[in-house]
């Protein structure tokens, strides 16, 4: 299982990537899977074992980003 972070725009994905990497998180960027959204955008994928979701939420919301978190098998 992975966490998938879905944003409104590519710009926000890039901004989130920069912020999360700066905060020491590990992540990668993938095309958003169809079952989550058919919008063709990008998402951030994070592994639960090294991700503190509360910290992720804090970093992103402090910087004005809105997003949804999904769990994907």
């Amino acid at each position: 299982m992975n966490y998938l972070l879905i944003f409104e725009s590519t710009h926000h994905v890039m901004k989130a990537e920069k912020l999360l990497l700066a905060a020491g998180f590990r992540l990668d960027i993938i095309s958003t899977p169809k079952e989550i959204s058919s919008a063709c955008g990008l998402s951030i994928r994070m592994k639960p074992e090294n991700t503190d979701l509360e910290m992720v939420r804090l970093v992103l919301t402090e910087n004005g980003l809105t997003f949804n978190i999904h769990e994907k098998k």
């Binding site: 409104e8 725009s9 955008g41």
Partner: peptide
């Protein structure tokens, strides 16, 4: 490259 499933152009 965003909201590609929508006919309307994104506002953001």
């Amino acid at each position: 490259g965003s909201k590609s499933d929508m006919a309307h152009h994104p506002e953001f």
